[in-house]
Design a protein around this nucleic acid. Sequence first.
DNA 1: CGGTATTTTGAGTATCGTCAAGGCCAGTGG
DNA 2: CCACTGGCCTTGACGATACTCAAAATACCG
Lengths: 260, 260
Amino acid sequence: MTFLDATNRLCAFSMIADLAELPHDLREALNKICQLRHLRQGQVIAHPGEPHDLVGFVAEGILRMQKTLPDGRQHVVGLLVPGDVYGRVFDGAMQFSIEAATEAKVFVFPRHAFEALLSASPALDRLMLLHFLTEIDRTRDWMVILSNPKVRGRLAGFLMMLCTRFRNIEGMLGSMNGMLTVSIPISRADLAHLLGARAESISRAFHALADDGMIDIIRPDLVVLRSIEDLADEAGEPEMGEAILTEDLPSHRIGSLRRL
Amino acid sequence: MTFLDATNRLCAFSMIADLAELPHDLREALNKICQLRHLRQGQVIAHPGEPHDLVGFVAEGILRMQKTLPDGRQHVVGLLVPGDVYGRVFDGAMQFSIEAATEAKVFVFPRHAFEALLSASPALDRLMLLHFLTEIDRTRDWMVILSNPKVRGRLAGFLMMLCTRFRNIEGMLGSMNGMLTVSIPISRADLAHLLGARAESISRAFHALADDGMIDIIRPDLVVLRSIEDLADEAGEPEMGEAILTEDLPSHRIGSLRRL
DNA sequence: CGGTATTTTGAGTATCGTCAAGGCCAGTGG
DNA sequence: CCACTGGCCTTGACGATACTCAAAATACCG
């Protein structure tokens, strides 16, 4: 299966900026081994333990990474948005399972073919290396959020992170009479696991933030951010608020490797 | 400055297994640009924001990564042990500052020279890639620990992580009449930041674990683990306990890229 | 040995977890 | 169209846990 547009140019990865910038012949080689998959919500595409023989790029939708504990409980440890990569390269089994949080589309590559290209192409190799560096920083940012002693603070940090990660992703951020809205792609129960709390506490924290005028809750999965500064303050990270407010919005570029 | 042993072979990286396994000519090239630095406790070797022009490998001692918030508070987000790498390659400024938690020795490479070698050598490139993959998984493990709702659980998880990370590191693990002891390389205050709690709560959690017979507190920075299973249970990760107990101890190998 | 920083303890309050019940919404079947 | 059902979110009440502020004890260092 190949992806060619009307003018016969490779277009499969056009929405994934980092791939689109690769040399033409490399894109062609990638195109030959790639496959587009539609995922319905809730579909699990990778199980921990068993070696996963695919490397995937998210094209549309939100996936979540989760650790499944022996007793069956599931522990969300991250979100994948368009432009993100999942799957191990070169070594070992996946540490986490991956599940579609929304309808999603992913490009998948057979692992060994992808690794062969990786070894042959410095550009792709560099791309992956930079991607992983970014991922490390993101996960450390998660840690900073999680180490806030109070649930309200962690939730505020989570909302801030959604803003930065969703900035370039269609349908996740919006505006209501001039104010920023953000979609919350996971359930209260999952959010509770992610933030180290119970679903009830998460619910109370949402409404506490609403009572203080920082947010409005339109639907459980859609909130208006009324005061980014106050949220950033609540999260204990003054710098994040400024970043969100001052930065311009290059909405054409998806999956930038630069951190926001 | 070069590092040659009595028989005139390169020996600088002998304690860092991953570097020692590189081809000879590459080790030689690395050796030419590398520098050994002794760090005294508390010394800060990287500041966030300002681009850091060095890539470092930890040879001895423990360093901590921390985020310095605008108001001056410091937020530990990880520990570096011998074999670990710090510093950004190719892109941007450091996100976190790095400080020596103990006396330490590090090998540092000028960033651009290191990048040049990286581009020229697939083996080194692969090494770094795998290292970063491991680092991502480690940080996600941190997340799982941090998302435990109770301080006792987070502390138990922290102790388990110390065991796995310190396994091959001299002076951090010991034994007292048959039982495992572990050194705690950071202060209560830093641990509190790391685990999302206050120093008082950390202290109380330590003594709560001691009262339940899971640990003995020899000194504030040295504890005996009396029941790894119970600790793992407290941490909510039954699998970790088994891993620590059943695994053999290849103490000659430092800085394995394989996850413990 | 004294002085300082760190750790611990204590008491009171705020927050959070827990259990239970109720509400909202979408889908189902009468 | 409506009642019913099940999942998810919310609310309430209560006990457990953790934060706060203060003070004491311990460890550390010269």
